[in-house]
Design a protein around this nucleic acid. Structure first.
Lengths: 229, 229
DNA sequence: CATGACGCTAATGTTGACATTCGGACAATC
DNA sequence: GATTGTCCGAATGTCAACATTAGCGTCATG
């Protein structure tokens, strides 16, 4: 190995320079999750292009990314708009998520390294800290999502991660809505449920892990449906 | 209910006019599945635009569709290319597919109408007919995929169908490869396995349907891995 | 001979202009 | 009065030119 002058190696798998399309997608996603565009609201290409200071083509490509994430929907010559949150949509998303989480948990149980497991513990601790202080719903939801991101990362299946990405933002949006409607129920359960999951990934038998992962999603599902009109 | 004069209502959900991007995607996908572009082979935008007689922008958008299907992969300023078929890729795709098929089967068992079930029977019959004659691998695989399309349609979950679409073309490509390598094994099992699945969707208990659907995918997985280098 | 810098080329990334389509307002018709 | 036909504006779909980048051969250099 060659001696180093710099204190730390890059360690990043290529700085992954991104194009304007990715940047645009990030900014628009942010705006949607911040509630600046209501569910069902239109996303006009010219408006966005002007607001972001890029060309329509780049915005267009950014919207494709968001469509792949299921956050927006577009139709021929009728433009792009944010998805709404009907009970039917919620049912669909959580059904798929349950199946994916089940596979992710089963797989991660076998493939997770000690680093991965430590990461999960750290995230649970962060949730607990958030609740102990003056809890902000949005931050708590972000940690929740991050936890599941970590599980998918540990499972190390690119196609599975890709499938998760296709529902991830929708789950994020739904959970945000859930927190906005009734915070107490969510706050009371998050930490314990995730702690249990993390523990089972360390040392649980396959069936228990599978059932718990599914039940975790169903719990979130019920919690949201109960508060929704 | 109001009396009708017309024998049947239109029932068409809009003729769904498509743009050049979709057409381009279709033609390119066709070319890939026909083997005209080898796994790992490059897909140059200018070439394709010239060949299809459309602008680069449309081709670019078409390639995005194929990327969403997982059939091609692209990187910043490094272009788009067809995926290869490594054992690792096969493992990933079939693991995800097993999870999705499991959910689709469980759901379809409850939501399928008589029409859906009849469609499944018809497809099984078509497979049997194909084998009885002079069987062509490509046609048999197409029927196989169509069968599973029908199951997903019966499950009536747009997100689930979307997730299936993200692996569908890859499965198609893999099965095509499988048939090209060793036809006998596949031919011997297809009809029976699908007939069993169709029967269970009519009248099987939940657990049996789930396990059979998973096992069906695993069987295909093993069959391919055995023949692969 | 190995190594690193330099520059070229072929491809993609980005842009603004032009063509097409959708949905609604309004008027004509039965 | 409801339906059908026509027009209009606004938005998206499409295109071809320009800017940027990665890969690679070449060359000087230790």
């Amino acid at each position: 190995m060659r001696s180093r002058v710099q204190p730390d190696p890059p360690a990043f798998g290529r700085a992954s320079r991104r194009g304007l399309a990715d940047e645009s997608a990030d900014r628009i996603r942010e705006a949607i999750l911040a509630g600046e565009v209501p569910p069902g609201g239109p996303l006009r290409e010219v408006e966005l292009a002007a607001a972001l200071g890029v060309s329509r083509g780049s915005v267009r490509e950014g919207l494709w990314i968001l469509e792949r994430e299921g956050l927006v929907r577009s139709a021929w010559h009728r433009g792009t708009s944010v998805i709404d949150i009907t009970p039917e949509d919620v049912r669909e998303v959580y059904a798929v998520r349950a199946a994916l989480d089940r596979l992710a948990a089963i797989t991660a149980r076998e493939t997770a390294t000690e680093n991965h497991l430590a990461e999960l513990d750290a995230l649970v601790a962060a949730m607990a800290a958030e609740i102990a202080g003056t809890p902000a719903g949005a931050r708590l939801v972000a940690l929740d999502i991050a936890f599941h991101d970590a599980v998918y990362t540990a499972a190390a299946n690119r196609r599975l991660t890709e499938a998760w990405r296709a529902v991830r933002s929708q789950v994020h949006l739904f959970q945000l809505r859930r927190v906005a409607l009734g915070f107490a129920h969510y706050r009371a359960r998050v930490v314990d449920e995730h702690r249990e999951l993390a523990a089972l990934l360390r040392s649980g038998d396959r069936d228990t892990v599978a059932r718990t992962a599914e039940e975790h999603v169903n719990s979130a599902h019920r919690g949201l449906l109960a508060d929704l009109p």
